[in-house]
Design a binder for these strands. Sequence first.
DNA 1: GCTTACCTTTACGTTAACGTAAAGCAGTCA
DNA 2: TGACTGCTTTACGTTAACGTAAAGGTAAGC
Lengths: 127, 127
Amino acid sequence: MTQTYSISDLARELDITTRAIRFYEEQDMLCPERRGLERVYCAKDKVTLKLILRGKRIGFSLAECKELIELYDPGHGNRKQLETFMQKIAERRTQLAQQLLDIEQMQIELDTAEERCRAALAQTATN
Amino acid sequence: MTQTYSISDLARELDITTRAIRFYEEQDMLCPERRGLERVYCAKDKVTLKLILRGKRIGFSLAECKELIELYDPGHGNRKQLETFMQKIAERRTQLAQQLLDIEQMQIELDTAEERCRAALAQTATN
DNA sequence: GCTTACCTTTACGTTAACGTAAAGCAGTCA
DNA sequence: TGACTGCTTTACGTTAACGTAAAGGTAAGC
């Protein structure tokens, strides 16, 4: 028994709108089964959606997310394509590494900001 | 002798357009000196710009970046405001922590993707 | 004096990623 | 037999973050 979902099931569970899900399908990032007109989603579709959402949280565009999705399933590639894939994977790695640095730096800056806030609060303690 | 910069100095150095810099000013994220009509930027402005760019790299909106900039200089706040600041800092920390998780997960997925690519390449080695 | 290189402002254009109606079909509950 | 509820499609609207063009001011160099 393979688990399936309606569009609003997924919308509820992943906390997005049905409109967004349909939009991702328009962009060829999803291709759910149909029962009549109704969309029927499977587990893989849910994984794809989670990948999209994760990508978005770290600032990836949908185009970039789509690339990631395609990278994740390189079955149908010839040698040339596969090498392109490897190339893109390397690029993403570089990007992720930079983002890690950026986040660490931000955390340091938040430390500083918090420190200053505490100091200012100490000054204004008598208000 | 405090270092100053023209708008195109900064554009070159930070690899953005002058249009973008002016746009950030429109959004009250910068407020450079003027010599006549010309904008004259100081070191602090450059730091602000770097903060903006760093924020963008990890998917922050300009509005969020602006908030960060304001957090970074809490001098003029009363108690209430400072507490709001502390709150916002905490929220950002949570967000950054989530992003770290997301990036780690992505890296794992890239590992998988690369693995599959290698496998597919091995299969197609005779082409 | 003319060109070239920067700088300025104003203003309309563009892309991404959906939001928001509008209009309609399918099952179900009172 | 309505009235919901949930699904569908089509299509126009919206916001963010600039791009791009128009029109012009100023200083340097030939």
